[in-house]
């Protein structure tokens, strides 16, 4: 449903995204992984319309949306969360989510009700009256998720919603993400927590230094030498292969 074709994003001399393409299937949870500074967040910004790509095209359901403003893309069904959370700090949780709900509900009472529903869905129902600024890190991540979800998107872009959470908080939120997909929302997620990627994603893209270097199932991608090198440095894939060969007695045993 979502296609990125040969997107390139330059900041002056720096090429943050370099001729990257991806394809998200409707109803899937697709992962986007890669080392820090690979250009993942930049690619999200390009998809959501916050940055105009230097080259390349974005299309949703086959329709080219490269020239659309961010708010128009939200109307078309793209919602994003921010890696660095961006709450409306002066508002409470309920008001924060209601802003999102207003996208499809013009009547205040409907929007307020929709926001309450979404808060339930992500487990924020007890914090509705709390100020957004007073939430914990985990709470803020849930709020990012809830606000985006309240726009009733077709595709949800999640930028490291698990970063900064402890293992038990991660365990709590994984089923929430899966239930969102089961309710019919396609998900594209940037994630560093490999356990979550393995657990949730059907298909994974790997971005390194702006280039898309691999794609496939999580298991396949994790064993891809190019991916291991991207994360751990040149020559590491070979070293790891050699080590594991020695540990298991080696291929020539």
């Amino acid at each position: 449903m979502l296609q990125v074709r040969n997107a390139t994003m330059r900041f002056g001399g720096l090429v943050a995204v370099n001729n990257a393409s991806l394809d998200v299937k409707e109803g899937s949870i697709t992962g986007l992984i890669g080392p820090n500074g690979a250009g993942k967040t930049t690619l999200f910004a390009v998809i959501a319309g916050f940055l105009k790509p230097t080259e390349g095209a974005i299309s949703l359901y086959g329709k080219d949306i490269t020239a659309e403003q961010p708010h128009k893309r939200a109307v078309s069904g793209i919602a994003r969360t921010f890696q660095i959370v961006q709450p409306f700090a002066g508002l409470n949780v309920h008001e924060n989510i209601t802003v999102g709900a207003y996208l499809r509900h013009a009547r205040p009472s409907d929007a307020v009700e929709k926001a309450r529903e979404v808060a339930h869905q992500v487990g924020l129902e007890k914090d509705l009256e709390k100020s957004a600024a007073s939430l914990t890190v985990a709470g803020r991540k849930r709020l990012e998720l809830a606000r985006a979800l309240a726009t009733e998107p077709k595709i949800l872009l999640l930028d490291e919603v698990l970063a900064g959470l402890n293992p038990s908080e991660i365990r709590d939120i994984i089923p929430v993400i899966r239930s969102i997909r089961d309710s019919g929302v396609t998900i594209l997620m940037i994630e560093h927590v490999m356990q979550a990627v393995m657990n949730l994603c059907e298909h994974v893209y790997v971005l390194a230094q702006g280039k898309m270097i691999a794609e496939g199932t999580p298991a396949a991608v994790c064993n891809d030498p190019a991916v291991i090198e991207a994360y751990l440095g040149k020559g590491s894939a070979e070293r790891i292969a050699r080590q594991s060969a020695e540990n298991t007695g080696g291929p020539n045993a």
Partner: peptide, 25 residues
């Protein structure tokens, strides 16, 4: 009390977040 009011407050609080939620800033 209206949607426009909520949008206006959202713009005050955080323009990027507002845009992401479909607000025509």
């Amino acid at each position: 009390n209206s949607r426009f009011g909520a949008h206006l407050v959202a713009v005050r609080e955080n323009e990027d977040a507002a845009k992401a939620l479909g607000v025509d800033v």
